[in-house]
Structure formats: structure tokens, C-alpha cells
Computed example of a mutant assay.
Amino acid sequence: MVTGPIQQPSTAVAAAPPPVARQHRPTLHGEVRTLARALAAPAGEPHWRERLITRLGPVRQGFAEHVQLTEGPTGLYVELLHQAPRLDPGVRLLTREHAAIATAIAALQHVAELPGVPDEELRGRAGQLLRALHRHRQRGADLLWEAYQADLGGET
């Protein structure tokens, strides 16, 4: 005979990611995609450099908003660490990437505005930036998955 409450097996019932995680990603992601399309155009096209510079502005602004929404005092990272303290190393990595990516965006914009910088150099720098943004987005998605989908049996 069983006495006491019956314990149900633990299942991975995921909480939805917080609204802050959902509200900024499509905008920044769309701006990055627009930058990638501008970069993919032939550099010999008239106004290629100007289009690249024009597309960098919204990426820079969107990324600054992303940093504020994630690192701010009521941001995503505070909530993640509250829900899953084990994610601290991942949050620290993403925070370091924020600084590096913001610097890379500013440097690319500065170099693109200098006369005489070869288009191939700009294309290379912009490609590196896009790869860094892609890796950062993937790491962030992986961290969210780990926080809200993984079931480790009652961590707090």
C-alpha cells in the first residue's frame, strides 16, 4: 500500500521565453538580413558603399536596443539568471560579445566612410561582422533553449 502523495515523473514542460526575448529579435534580425542583402550586391554597382553605410545605421541601433533589453536592470539576462543560475557563464559570454560586436559595427561604419578603402576590405569586414552576429544570435537562442526547455529537476 502506498502512503503519502503520489509523485508524478518530471516532464520538460517549458515556460515561454519572456516577452523581452521575443519583442526585439525580429527587428534586429530583419536589419541584419537587409545588411546581408546589401553586402551581397556586386561592389561595382553604383552606390554600393552608400547602401552598405545606410544599412549599418539600423543594425547599430537595433543592436544597441538588443543590448539594453538583455543587459538592462530588468532585462532578459537578469531573468535568465534568476530562473537558471547555472547559465551564468553563457550570459557572461554573450555580454562580452555585445561589447565586441558594438565595436565592430562602429569600426565598420567608420572605415566605410573613409575614402579610398577598397570595397573588398569592406566586404571582408562586413562578412566578419555578419558571422559574429549570426554566432551571437545562435548562442543566445541556445541559452534560451537551455533555460526554458531543459528540465533538470528543480533548479533554483
Rank of each mutant, 00 (worst) to 15 (best):
G90D: 08
E79C: 01
A64L: 04
L52W: 08
R51W: 07
L114I: 03
T54S: 14
L76Y: 02
V78I: 07
A41P: 05
H24I: 09
T11W: 10
A43T: 13
A43F: 03
Q61V: 12
T34F: 06
V111H: 03
A21I: 07
V13G: 13
G62N: 01
A112V: 02
I101W: 01
R60K: 13
G44A: 14
E31W: 05
A40L: 07
R37Y: 06
T74V: 06
I53F: 04
T11I: 14
L56E: 09
R33H: 13
Y77K: 01
P85L: 02
E71D: 13
H29Q: 15
A64S: 12
A112F: 03
L87T: 09
I101P: 00
R37N: 11
F63M: 03
T54C: 06
A104L: 07
T27E: 14
Q23P: 04
L87E: 13
E97H: 11
F63Y: 14
R22C: 10
T95M: 01
V20W: 04
G72L: 07
T34L: 13
T11Y: 14
E50T: 13
T74C: 01
E45M: 09
R86N: 02
T103M: 08
A15L: 15
P9R: 12
R49I: 11
G30W: 05
G30T: 05
A40K: 09
L39G: 05
A43R: 11
P17N: 09
P9G: 12
D88I: 03
P26R: 03
V13W: 13
E31M: 09
L80A: 09
V13E: 15
E31Q: 15
P18G: 02
T74K: 05
H47F: 11
G75N: 05
A84S: 10
P42S: 05
E113T: 07
R55L: 07
Y77V: 01
P42K: 06
L80Q: 07
W48L: 11
